[in-house]
Design a protein around this nucleic acid. Structure first.
Lengths: 137, 137
DNA sequence: TCTCTAATGAGAATGATTCTTAGGGGGAAA
DNA sequence: TTTCCCCCTAAGAATCATTCTCATTAGAGA
């Protein structure tokens, strides 16, 4: 993604555009995996050697609040960030601890139909997160 | 559950029976919610004032390894323990941060059927965990 | 009962995340 | 352009859950 594109995403999220936010968003958008804050920090340091880890945390948090990235907590209790906003599930490999995306529109619609029919008493569903645990072959 | 019952569960898991393991298992089995290690520690101290927090962590971990309880990580990155072994989903309330069980056999079989038909390439599924996020009404 | 090994208690150490504080930069208004 | 103000940032201290270390203790089998 080009600089203008990223700038738009950040400002449309209601955030001031800064160099730090730029490189951090870029790192997330380009990441194939689901990086930790530490990992983003490492990545970003080459473009911005004086950046601080605290800034990375705070910036990622603003992005989440602004709704331009997602976050979740992995099996070890470490935060993971995800630039993909559409509904999708995660595959967690117990051997390598890697987390990858699993998108399947059929699964999404199956679940949607199920919960449309089977309302949960006194509970309003906002989102459904699925983690498929197992191992890569 | 009585003492003998708990003793059986612990020894059948291949673990030596001790007083600490007894009271810790009891606390998990009786818990309605999904207690943290800290919470179990508080609970257990009345029956065993000299117990150490490290022991609670280590014991819970042995239980998980032995397969007699389950654990997961909540949205805040804190470990939660669960004495219920059957497949079930969790409801997470964004307002109160409470986590409750959601058991629905239809949902389980729906998912089982789906993944029987739709194998994931190069991935062997072990378990599927579903967290339904939203809010209590 | 005796012995051996695994379990325990106490507290130090670790690691991820948040907080604090001081300094800096960009936009709005004149 | 200049000033003001507020938000952003850097650096590191503080926090909190969890793990580790190590000396001591207590089960289970001989």
């Amino acid at each position: 993604m080009n600089i203008e594109g990223i700038k738009n995403i950040i400002t449309e999220g209601g955030l001031k555009f800064t160099h730090q936010r730029m490189v951090i968003y870029q790192a997330i958008a380009e990441a194939e995996n689901h990086p930790t804050a530490e990992r983003v920090f490492e990545q970003v340091k080459s473009d911005n050697p004086s950046i601080s880890l605290g800034t990375v945390y705070k910036t990622l948090d603003s992005f989440v609040t602004a709704g331009i990235i997602q976050k979740f907590v992995d099996n070890k209790g470490v935060m993971r960030f995800d630039g993909v906003l559409e509904a999708h599930s995660h595959l967690y490999c117990k051997k390598t601890n890697e987390i990858s995306d699993y998108k399947n529109a059929d699964l999404e619609s199956l679940l949607k139909k199920f919960f449309d029919k089977n309302q949960i008493e006194d509970f309003e569903i906002d989102e459904i997160s699925i983690v498929i645990k197992g191992q890569k072959l």
